[in-house]
Design a protein around this nucleic acid. Structure first.
Lengths: 288, 288
DNA sequence: CCATCTTTGTGCACACGTTCACAAACGCAT
DNA sequence: ATGCGTTTGTGAACGTGTGCACAAAGATGG
């Protein structure tokens, strides 16, 4: 089985209109942009094995997509294939890299050096694609001064200077959720215009700033949903015949629920997981 | 500015048909499922502040979506609101939790205890939503026996026994990409039917197994794309007037490229990033 | 009981994304 | 040159997702 939508955990502000205006300016659909990195990865693997050309069918298989989709995606970039032959691997690697902006150097700051920050600092995938960790930052004095991935952790107060000096335009937030918005504001103020947010919080940013979100727990919840379906479970026994009934019956039920302060169903929900506050999600991970 | 599609980094097999068959079985669109965790997070926050009811407008703002979309999403679950009033927070928390399958306990194994594995093991967001780390596993003898997040790291060989004993149906892969498929096969063999993959690899799984993918570097690449656009850069100078030209001109250009083994463009691409192999992405992160 | 105000639930139109299917383009052998 | 097999590039059909805008439903006050 394969779960649906090729997409799901990122881009916190779902405004396709805005996206369209931005990226379709020269015509590349957002969905295509999201797949380009996949193709690029598959292509680089082929390139290392010195494969000279590849057909849309083969490449699609390697990238885990359908070949028609791949061809259409490439058609937005231009006509880079040769009919009867396929695509020149090296050439395509270059074209996609260029389109994604990976032929230039992108300095990146990572804010919040807990376990996740560490993992990202060490993440080879960054360095190998034009991204360079300009600095690791944290607010916790106990963390500042330690080293991660060969780089010293510096104090948040240096942020503005670092961003200015190295022309950093991309920031990664791996702080606890409570600190995220504050850090975000400061990044934006300092001049960062693209933010990758790992904290489970909705960030508010001014126009002109892009935010993408990666939420570790959302993915797991989506899996749980499908897993539940597989088990054949109707979502649960529940008290819910009323809920699907139309008309006055439902109204009465709603009234009852409110009167009872949520009813027994709600209490059941409250006691179900650990009693811990769910918005503290990352606090265990990030010291600062 | 807000980047488009609310979605983008997960679900490695983009087969909406299959997804539809699975989740629309009782009518909930995949896009809606992906947003339910967002609503749930916002609602739990309200619940902690003891807010009794919330309007679609308020909740939508808190979750970072449009209110019409939110109402439509909820309408797939049933009619849980009260006109003129809004939604009962506690009741909605329960309904969404139930729909997502979070009212039951989901034991999870994490395979590959490097930095990322550590981060996930410590991730409060798991435990607080019905997920329980059943075991941490690694193949590296140096890692086995150490502790992470209060749990001992056990050897891969115990996998089958653990999965069977604790009825684990969800596995998380945080190994280097080279080991991912092998680990995946073993998880599936042991009985795991949902996999969350952090390794930058396309996993092949039999029917009936769900895979979702979280790719840290893809998100960054998408940001770079938009950042490049903001800079007003046409993707690069390039050699590319030919590429958009139709007809025989293009054909000739393609021929030339192939003859030259990729041409100067390709070499430029090859030397652009660090010379490191891109599929080793996670090797620095994960010891095993 | 009626009038008024608020907010939900949803029909509808449109935009976006995916897939099919096929003609045009190319390499290659004869 | 010509014909054959292969593979691209894309027009068109379809399905999904989004957002508007409004009627229906309930709350509230007189």
């Amino acid at each position: 089985m394969a779960i649906g939508r090729p997409s799901s955990s990122s881009s916190q502000t779902p405004d396709p209109g805005a996206a369209r205006r931005t990226s379709r300016a020269r015509g590349i659909p957002e969905a295509t942009v999201a797949r380009l990195p996949l193709y690029l990865r598959a292509l680089t693997a082929l390139s290392e094995r010195s494969v000279p050309t590849v057909s849309s069918e083969e490449l699609a298989a390697a990238a885990g997509v359908n070949s028609a989709k791949l061809r259409k995606d490439f058609s937005y970039l231009g006509s880079y294939g040769t009919r009867g032959v396929g695509y020149d691997v090296e050439y395509l690697v270059y074209q996609i890299s260029r389109e994604l902006g990976l032929t230039q150097d992108w300095p990146v700051v990572i804010v919040g050096i807990g376990n996740l920050g560490h993992a990202l600092a060490n993440y080879g995938g960054f360095a190998s694609r034009g991204f360079r960790v300009a600095a690791l930052l944290d607010a916790d004095p106990n963390v500042v001064g330690t080293a991660a991935a060969g780089l010293p952790v510096r104090h948040m107060d240096e942020l503005e200077a670092i961003v200015a000096a190295q022309h950093v335009s991309i920031g990664v937030i791996t702080t606890p959720p409570g600190a995220a918005q504050q850090v975000c504001d400061r990044l934006v103020e300092a001049g960062v215009t693209s933010i990758l947010n790992f904290a489970p919080t909705v960030l508010t940013v001014p126009d002109g700033v892009d935010v993408r979100k990666v939420d570790l727990s959302i993915e797991l919840q989506i899996l749980a949903f499908h897993e539940q379906r597989k088990a054949g479970d109707e979502p649960a026994a529940g008290d819910s015949v009323l809920d699907r009934a139309p008309g006055p019956v439902r109204a009465a039920a709603a009234k009852l629920r409110r009167a009872a302060g949520g009813g027994k169903a709600a209490e059941q929900a409250k006691s179900a997981p650990t009693g811990k506050g769910p918005e503290d999600d990352l606090s265990a991970v990030m010291p600062a």
